[in-house]
């Protein structure tokens, strides 16, 4: 069971027996008033979305999802193909089901694909993924507010802010939960 204070982006809960994922989350509390938890929820089966505001007293069951370790193979138009390395079973996820993970999907990366009654609905990646910087502009010392950072493009097309010492061709580690740069990876 989850309570309202567990709500956060990415949490999967059960509502009317369907699995939902929290796609946007905001904690609001008017002065001296009660805590409110504003969520945008996406039905993981049919993709329908709605907004709902919960209170501290609300409780939720976790969504009945099974995870299966699979490998990402390729993308074909809007479809992303994953394969079970033992049974060679293949499943497809659409762009919406892949979500932010699209920023980290490199060939053969291992993913936990989520199933609800044998239907693939989404995926989780490990918290840290190493990606190659494919484009980085040479850095001219800039203004002080942006500080020691610059935008670069990674091999997946994902644009990310990194320290200025990172150069094209280097590999960096990214936190898939926040989408932020973590560290440079050697070798």
């Amino acid at each position: 069971m989850y309570t309202a204070s567990d709500l956060r982006k990415g949490l999967r809960i059960k509502i009317d027996n369907d699995p939902y994922v929290v796609t946007e989350f905001n904690f609001v509390k008017p002065g001296k008033g009660q805590a409110l938890y504003r969520c945008r929820l996406r039905n993981m089966i049919n993709g329908s979305q709605f907004e709902r505001t919960f209170r501290s007293v609300d409780a939720f069951e976790s969504a009945d999802l099974q995870e299966k370790k699979m490998q990402y193979l390729y993308q074909e138009e809007d479809k992303y193909c994953f394969m079970d390395n033992e049974s060679y079973e293949q499943v497809f996820l659409n762009r919406e089901q892949v979500g932010d993970a699209v920023n980290y999907l490199i060939d053969n990366i291992e993913a936990q694909v989520l199933f609800f009654e044998d239907r693939a609905l989404g995926l989780s990646l490990s918290n840290f993924v190493d990606l190659v910087v494919t484009q980085a502009d040479p850095w001219a010392k800039g203004d002080s507010v942006t500080g020691n950072q610059k935008p670069v493009t990674l091999q997946t097309g994902y644009q990310i802010l990194v320290p200025t010492f990172i150069e094209e061709g280097e590999k960096i580690r990214v936190d898939t939960r926040t989408g932020e740069y973590l560290t440079r990876v050697k070798g």
Binding site: N148, P163, F165, R173, D175, E180, Y181, L182, T183
Partner: peptide, 13 residues
Amino acid sequence: RDEPDAGREWRLT
């Protein structure tokens, strides 16, 4: 800067 905590240190910078 390549130690595991470098990301956090950088965020502080």
